[in-house]
């Protein structure tokens, strides 16, 4: 049963349509990504899910509740980490978590959460003295301190250096192990690919694709290309006879095989049966970046 259901969501600000028509379901325990270029309507969509904005049309249901009507109940169950939301400069790490913990009926132990998020040495450090990565971890901790069933994380790693970004991803994977459903807004392909079970790609206020990261890639660009140097001459027919192979070309001593599905396995099997070793074997595949460009016509960030 889905824990988040968004159906034909529509939202405009004055004359500007931010979200035209967005629908998706998120299953319990899933990490669901909302991916899209800047201004695509990602944040507005999740803000409607979080109950911060009132949709102009469509239905949003979170844990079977209405984010506006049942706001008080949902705030106990949904932890939200907002984009560009900061804390007072002089507020210390432990104080922030203890204060937020006091808002919830059944909070996590702030001290343990601080340790789990690697902020143990910073518990008495004021917010202004934290690094970007530490601020982000504190923000995630605040979203988790109420022991939520769902965590909504908006632009989790924007502005972080690559190491801090990877650390944060590791953290999210540990959060998933607590059976928390995560709705993740991002415009980083690598982040979506690494973390998300499924993705909704949003562009100009509409869902343009909804699938697993690998599903999105193969739907947009199903072809894979294998390059290798054979240890002995290869008859092209050996390869073209395989149902997965669509084309075989040669460039110098290299053989280039294009195909779909488990073409790699098929090619390496047939070579092995003929005692041919494939040296310098490379598999070229479309990436989520390619899929994103194909779907939205935008270059992804970075």
């Amino acid at each position: 049963m889905p824990v988040i259901e968004v159906t034909n969501l529509h939202k405009r600000y004055g004359g500007t349509v931010a979200v035209q028509d967005v629908s998706f379901d998120v299953a319990a325990g899933e990490i669901f990504g909302v991916l899209g270029p800047n201004g695509a309507g990602k944040t507005t969509t999740v803000e409607c899910v979080a109950g911060l904005r009132v949709p102009d049309g469509g239905e949003v249901s979170v844990l079977g509740l209405d984010p506006r009507r049942d706001a008080a109940r949902l705030r106990q169950l949904v932890g939200v980490q907002l984009q560009e939301s900061q804390l007072p400069d002089r507020l210390r790490v432990a104080e922030a978590l203890e204060m937020y913990a006091s808002f919830y009926r059944d909070p996590a132990d702030p001290a343990r959460l601080i340790d789990e998020l690697g902020l143990g040495e910073k518990r008495n450090t004021p917010y202004q003295k934290l690094s970007g990565g530490q601020k982000q971890r504190l923000s995630i901790a605040l979203a988790l301190v109420g022991n939520p069933k769902i965590a909504i994380l908006d632009e989790l790693t924007t502005g972080l250096d690559p190491q801090a970004r990877r650390d944060t991803w590791g953290l999210i994977e540990r959060v998933r192990e607590r059976r928390v459903t995560i709705l993740l807004v991002t415009h980083f392909m690598e982040e979506a690919e690494r973390l998300c079970d499924r993705l909704a790609v949003i562009d100009k206020g509409r869902v343009v694709a909804l699938d697993s990261p690998s599903g999105l890639v193969s739907a947009v660009a199903p072809e894979q290309r294998i390059r290798f140097r054979p240890s002995a001459p290869v008859d092209d027919r050996l390869l073209t006879d395989l149902p997965q192979v669509t084309a075989v070309t040669r460039s110098g001593s290299q053989v280039v095989v294009t195909g779909t599905g488990d073409v790699l396995h098929a090619v390496t099997s047939v070579l092995a049966r003929n005692q041919i070793i494939a040296a310098d074997l490379r598999l070229e595949q479309a990436t989520l970046d390619d899929a994103f460009v194909e779907l939205t016509g935008h270059r992804p960030a970075e």
Partner: peptide, 10 residues
């Protein structure tokens, strides 16, 4: 965003 963040909590 301190106020907005509080608005997402109970």
């Amino acid at each position: 965003g301190v106020l907005r963040r509080l608005a997402t909590t109970p």
